[in-house]
C-alpha cells in the first residue's frame, strides 16, 4: 500500500482566476478513505479556499457529486483504493456552469424540478384530514417506489450526453420524478405535468443512451421511466387523433 496518493483538483475562483486550472495535492492514503475524506483533509489542513458541496457522507443527501476520473460519482462513495495508484482527477459535474472549484450552479436543475410539480396533486377539492389516509396495496407502491429513491444528486445529468449539449432538455432525474408521481395511485396530477414531460424538450429529447441509469447511486432507472412515459405519451397522441378521443 502506498503512503500517499495524488489528487488533481479542478480549481476556479472567478474573482482570482482568469480560467480554470488543475492543482495537484498529495494526501495520505488510507484504505477506508473516500475521495470526500481526502477533500476534507485538504480543506482542513492544506488549503482552506478549496470549495465543494457535501453534507451527509453516507450517500443520502446527494450533495457531493463530482466527476472522479471523468465519471460522475458521489465522492462519499468513491474509495481512494479503487483508483490506485492514482492520480485521481476531481472535477465539477459535467454539463453545469461552475460557480467556484467543484461547486456548480443548480438554478437550471431546480427550475426544471419544480416545473414538473414533484408532489402529490389531488384534483378532488375539499378533502380533509378527517376523510382519512389514502391506502395503497403493495403492488401500487411497487409501481413507483424505485423512482422515489432519487436524491437529486444530478449524476445522471452529468452522465447524459443529450443534456451535455441540449440545455433545454428537462433531463433524467426530473422526468423520473415526474413519472414517480404519475404512477402513484394517490396522485391526480398527470394533466398538469404532461405539457412539460411530453414536450419535445421533455421525454422526446431522450435517445435512450441509458448512462443515467448506469451512474445512479440509488439504482433509480431514469432511462426506463422515460421509455414508460414515451409509451403513455404515444397512447395519448394516438387518442388525440381519434374523433372521439378524450384528449
Amino acid at each position: 500500500m502506498p503512503d500517499t496518493i495524488t489528487l488533481e483538483l479542478f480549481r476556479y475562483h472567478p474573482d482570482r482566476d482568469e480560467r480554470p486550472r488543475f492543482q495537484a495535492y498529495e494526501v495520505p492514503f488510507r484504505e477506508d478513505w473516500v475521495v470526500l475524506d481526502a477533500l476534507n483533509y485538504l480543506k482542513d489542513r492544506v488549503d482552506g479556499s478549496l470549495t465543494y458541496r457535501w453534507s451527509c457522507r453516507m450517500g443520502v443527501c446527494g450533495s457531493c457529486g463530482m466527476m472522479v476520473n471523468g465519471y460522475p460519482k458521489l465522492t462519499c462513495a468513491a474509495f481512494l483504493r479503487d483508483y490506485l495508484p492514482g492520480p485521481i482527477r476531481v472535477e465539477p459535474l459535467s454539463g453545469f456552469p461552475v460557480e467556484r472549484d467543484m461547486v456548480v450552479v443548480l438554478d437550471d436543475f431546480m427550475q426544471k424540478l419544480s416545473s414538473v410539480k414533484p408532489w402529490i396533486i389531488r384534483e378532488t377539492a375539499a378533502e380533509t384530514m378527517a376523510s382519512g389516509e389514502y391506502r395503497q396495496t403493495p403492488a401500487q407502491l411497487a409501481a413507483f417506489k424505485q423512482y422515489s429513491m432519487c436524491i437529486n444528486c444530478m449524476l445522471c445529468y452529468a452522465a447524459c450526453p443529450v443534456y451535455q449539449h441540449e440545455e433545454q432538455f428537462v433531463g433524467p432525474a426530473v422526468l423520473a420524478l415526474a413519472q414517480r408521481y404519475n404512477l402513484d395511485s394517490r396522485d391526480q396530477g398527470n394533466s398538469q405535468r404532461y405539457p412539460v414531460v411530453w414536450a419535445d424538450d421533455g421525454i422526446w429529447d431522450c435517445t435512450f443512451v441509458g448512462e443515467c441509469s448506469a451512474v445512479c447511486p440509488k439504482h433509480v432507472d431514469p432511462a426506463g421511466a422515460i421509455q414508460q412515459a414515451k409509451i403513455q405519451s404515444t397512447v395519448g397522441f394516438m387518442r388525440s387523433l381519434l374523433p372521439f378521443g378524450n384528449r
Partner: peptide
C-alpha cells in the same frame, strides 16, 4: 396543449 409529433415517428 400542442402535442409533439414525435410519438408518431417514435412508434414507427
Amino acid at each position: 396543449m400542442r402535442y409533439s409529433n414525435e410519438p408518431l415517428f417514435w412508434s414507427l
